[in-house]
Write a protein that binds this DNA or RNA. Structure first.
Lengths: 352, 352
DNA sequence: CCCCTCGGTCGAATCGTTTCGATCGAAACG
DNA sequence: CGTTTCGATCGAAACGATTCGACCGAGGGG
């Protein structure tokens, strides 16, 4: 009587005295089954210790796993340090949660590489969301395209076969910079996001600029420069973190004639800049105006509120989730461009 | 010639003029195949646009998916705000990355609930890691146990069938408190982690204490009280965040005779307490000593270094990963207790 | 010169479901 | 009372691979 192997639907059906197909229906509820039969099946299952239909077998038959992959082109530790990425995931989880088992996080192990092509080719996904912005350089899209797996990109370049959730990086960045300009600032510097490929820290010179960077990062710089009408003195951060912002702040501020305003292309960078300013004895916003980008919570800056471009981070995830749902239902969602709005906080003021 | 459906191994084999079994071997490399044949198969595959063996079919046959589930009993947004959880995930990913497709994050959608039982029953996992500490209250273990899925718990209570990676919460917490005592402090207060169930904010009174809280949280409190030799004046935070720490700090410090030292049971809480102290015009460590727990990076406290109990966060994940590997290989790993060491920083000093 | 071995290849069984079409009895209808 | 209809149930065919044992020839050892 004792079976060493786990019970299957066949065993349950036999024990309940019904056919496998009926037993299956009893579990899935996808067909007409009399209450009595259903109960017999469930009882038999309980008695045998049957845990319900095997997910793998079910997947094979149905052709889907319910798993949505989220691709990061960074090591997990770095990707998850970014509040924007977390918010995105949260929105995604919120939208997709009830649907399937969950989110499969696909990251690289390397400091800056994403998951391997083999990993992507072998992952049991129904759809994938590219959370990183450097879509075009990624050879990661190809294996999924071959498998005909629906893909959604976040703030990436437009690519055939990849639905896009985008935000108006150029416009928002321009708006922030215009705000700074309208306050009367003349000496403005920028802290830009890491310029792919090969994140490094340092002044963004001509040569570096000419490398094709990531769309997002390039767009934010472009917005700033469009507002100024000229190229801006910029420092490139190696990552979007407070520490990097601090290093940037030090480099930009600890000079003879420091800027009176710094436009940082992320809130974390801005926070670092403010910290550096404080360390150098500069007051914000009296001696230095600082603006950020993203609109994350910055309780540690309290009582200061950061002037920044607020993007709908969680909403981005939700919309991506809805796109995934649409794609899986066979519909073709249109690309979405989400609005970003300027929030004037207490970190910007007219120059003295 | 045009096929509307995606090619399968059968098509590839036919096109290459070999049997399916041989084609399979050519892909998996698990058997002797002549170089010539292998090449023919790969060529045929390329020509047909065959993306490699279907993950679901492969899973069904092999009985495993390569997916490791990570269970959080919280909404993703909250779970991922905790640097300790991120570090754990990072260590896990590092250890398991090369093995399989990735980590399946299983969270609830509710503010404080984990994934549903059905979700767990239907997830195609090879093994699961419980990242939350409240293992015992979770009905989540059961569905996985029935499915005979190997489980690893982090800092949870000892449970049959669940391998454990633990840290010495009691000892470490005692050590931190002893350090405070050795500096000569008499008026000591604590900020404890949320006391399950029903996270709320407020003084930890008798009634609340008597509820069986989570092991970790209880252990850290116990360590503190063992050192003091009496029950401690404690504030319960609703979450392990800077904001909550700040609220706690306000409540504990904005009174007639405030404590001269506060032991916070997480670094984030400690950071909040320090912030609250500053807001109240208290200097750290001159007017108030503050200690934390965890040993996360706190660049924003710079130049202050937090006095804290440093736990090997990433290592915890790595070890959990190794345990998973062992379990999948049929070995039965022993439970692990990782050391935690006191790091004396600049936030603690003798009382004035 | 024969037998054994071994690399390379193949057929067929199997993994555990879901699902389609057929069947069967009973109720409903004319 | 015969025919339709419909709900409940069942058999059998997928789903797309892996894997085990068998087979076949060539090369090596006796």
């Amino acid at each position: 009587m004792a079976r060493t192997t786990r019970p299957t639907l066949t065993h349950v059906a036999a024990s309940a005295g019904v056919s496998v197909s009926t037993a299956s229906l009893a579990f899935s509820g996808a067909g007409p089954v009399s209450e009595r039969t259903r109960q017999r099946v469930l009882d038999a299952a309980a008695e045998l210790g049957y845990a319900g239909p095997d997910p793998m077998a079910r997947s094979l038959r149905q052709g889907r796993t319910g798993i949505i992959g989220v691709v990061f082109a960074e090591r997990l530790r770095h990707a998850f340090r970014d509040p924007v990425a977390i918010a995105l995931l949260d929105g995604l989880a919120e939208e997709l949660g009830p649907v399937g088992p969950g989110l499969l996080v696909l990251t690289g192990n390397d400091e800056r590489a994403g998951p391997s092509t083999e990993q992507l080719a072998a992952a049991p996904l129904d759809a994938a969301v590219f959370a990183t912005c450097d879509l075009e350089e990624e050879p990661l899209v190809e294996p999924l395209r071959v498998r005909e797996i629906p893909m959604v990109g976040i703030e990436g370049p437009r690519m055939p076969g990849v639905s896009l959730v985008d935000i108006d990086n150029i416009g928002a960045s321009r708006e922030v910079t215009e705000h700074i300009l309208s306050l009367g600032h003349k000496r403005i510097a920028a802290v830009v996001l890491p310029w792919r490929p090969g994140r490094q820290r340092g002044f963004l010179d001509r040569a570096r600029r000419d490398l094709s960077g990531s769309v997002v990062f390039a767009d934010r710089l472009r917005g700033t420069e469009e507002a100024i009408g000229a190229s801006v003195h910029a420092w490139e951060a190696a990552a979007s973190t407070v520490e990097e912002g601090r290093a940037a702040g030090r480099a930009l501020l600890d000079v003879d004639e420091p800027p009176t305003a710094i436009v940082a292309h992320s809130d974390l960078l801005a926070a670092g800049v403010i910290q550096a300013a404080h360390e150098l004895g500069l007051r914000v916003p009296e001696d230095l105006s600082v603006a950020g980008f993203d609109g994350i919570d910055t309780p540690w800056l309290d009582p200061l509120t950061l002037t920044t471009a607020v993007q709908p981070m969680v909403e981005k995830g939700r919309i991506a989730g809805r796109m995934v749902t649409d794609l899986l239902a066979g519909r073709t969602p249109e690309d979405v461009l989400l609005p970003v709005h300027l929030r004037v906080g207490g970190t910007t003021a007219p120059p003295r």
